[in-house]
């Protein structure tokens, strides 16, 4: 069976200037996830977490490489049907729109009705309102229904680390233009890049949770 998601030689390059092109951003990703689960994604601001999610859900075309969701190249599927494969729950008001160069009629239909992959981009976790508990249960329910869940989180409070360490079974660190897979919370925070991104105080909290 095809992996739930596979990023095959993905590379995204942003440039500026017309005559003298200068590269302003690069992101490379090469990974696949076969089994349902919950993946925690962390990384500094501007590292490309949202760009990664946009490529995985088919709104932002990679410069090269393919994103296969359940074996289907999501960028070859009709625009309005891509969220039947992988759906991006954006940060509020952060939806970016991209040019649609190929007419939808020339694209494929989605083979699935409901998304296989759910990507939550910095969900608002507010410990005061109690929704966190329902949100975490929902992520687990999706996983138990055979879905793959990605949660992008920018840890700014202790409970963010608590959430990440308790709910995710795999982790990804987006940093320095690369996406690195980590098998455990311990492996994630022991990476020097993650450690410096967290800062000494958050790192200390994180190491107690690992």
């Amino acid at each position: 069976m095809a992996p739930l998601i596979a990023l095959d030689g993905i590379r995204k390059v942003y440039t500026r200037g017309t005559l003298r092109r200068q590269t302003t951003f690069t992101l490379e990703a090469n990974f696949s996830v076969d089994q349902p689960g919950i993946v925690g994604v962390v990384g500094p601001n501007g590292a490309g977490k949202t760009t990664l999610f946009e490529m995985m859900t088919g709104s932002n075309e990679p410069t090269s490489g393919r994103v296969l969701v359940g074996g289907t190249d999501i960028h070859k599927v009709k625009y309005k049907e891509r969220d039947r494969l992988a759906i991006h729950y954006h940060q509020s008001y952060q939806v970016r729109h991209f040019k649609k160069l190929v007419p939808s009629a020339m694209l494929l239909s989605s083979p699935t009705e409901r998304p296989l992959v759910h990507l939550f981009d910095e969900p608002q976790f507010n410990p005061q309102d109690g929704y966190i508990g329902f949100m975490l249960d929902f992520f687990k329910r999706l996983r138990d229904e055979g879905k793959l869940v990605f949660i992008c989180l920018h840890p700014t409070a202790t409970y963010h680390l608590e959430i990440l360490s308790s709910i995710a079974s795999h982790f990804m660190l987006v940093s320095g233009g690369k996406v690195m897979q980590k098998d455990s919370f311990g492996a994630l925070i022991s990476d020097e890049r993650c450690r410096s991104y967290l800062g000494p105080q958050m790192y200390e909290t994180a190491s107690k949770l690992a």
């Binding site: 005061q128 109690g130 929704y131 949100m135």
Partner: peptide, 27 residues
């Protein structure tokens, strides 16, 4: 409880209150 266009939780008030995060919150 509706979030992200889906029902993420459902139950009687006492069932919903059983959730650890709910108990820790204002709810």
């Amino acid at each position: 409880v509706i979030h992200w266009g889906q029902v993420i939780a459902r139950g009687t008030p006492s069932e919903l209150r059983e959730n650890e995060w709910v108990r820790r919150s204002n709810l």
